[in-house]
């Protein structure tokens, strides 16, 4: 049986898993006629299927400080390290359904930018009964404070470094 899964919505670093395996979506430039989205994945499966959508800000991971430090050092003191997203919410959505023939699911993920869409979070459209959990976005205040601290520390470090270099250069040349 083929499960056709469409993804609506664009949240960077949000991954979708089907039966615990990460699903990679084919991206078309625009949806084809009659299709609900331009992102589609076709998965071969049987019986019960579990679809999960997950997003967690990296700064609230376990050992987040160590990871942030490692990336900061490897990326030349934060200059080339990958940035941290401004999405201070986490999402851990799971849907379980039993399929007996080829089915089409549409997973719509709303941005947590306003409280209404944050509360709604994820909606699944399909023709079979679905047991859902963790639909809404959950606010993560820690992620916000940690991201701000990370940016502030990086800026302060570079200011101090530039000041020290300028002072050394001035003392050497004058």
């Amino acid at each position: 049986m083929t499960l056709t899964l469409y993804l609506r919505g664009n949240i960077k670093d949000m991954y979708v898993y089907v039966n615990g395996k990460r699903t990679l979506f084919e991206r078309r430039s625009r949806p084809q006629l009659g299709e609900p989205s331009n992102k589609v994945a076709r998965i071969e499966t049987e019986g019960e299927v579990e679809i999960s959508a997950c997003y967690i800000p990296p700064l609230i991971f376990k050992h987040a400080f160590l990871y942030a430090l490692a990336f900061w050092l490897a990326g030349f003191f934060g200059l080339f390290s990958p940035g941290y997203s401004k999405v201070y919410y986490s999402l851990n959505y799971t849907a379980r359904a039993k399929i007996e023939k080829d089915e089409t699911f549409v997973l719509e993920v709303l941005s947590p930018s306003n409280p209404k869409s944050a509360a709604r979070g994820v909606t699944m459209y399909c023709n079979v009964p679905v047991e859902e959990s963790g639909c809404g976005w959950v606010k993560e205040p820690k992620a916000k404070s940690r991201r701000r601290a990370y940016i502030a520390l990086t800026v302060v470090f570079w200011l101090v470094l530039l000041a020290a270099l300028s002072a050394t250069l001035a003392l050497t040349l004058l």
Binding site: Y15, Y17, G20, C54, P58, Y67, F71, G75, P82, T94
Partner: peptide
């Protein structure tokens, strides 16, 4: 899923770096 997600995201961030 969250632990798998963490591993996947860290791998993706490593690739970007």
């Amino acid at each position: 899923i969250t632990s798998i997600y963490q591993k996947d995201l860290l791998r993706s961030r490593r690739a970007r770096l």
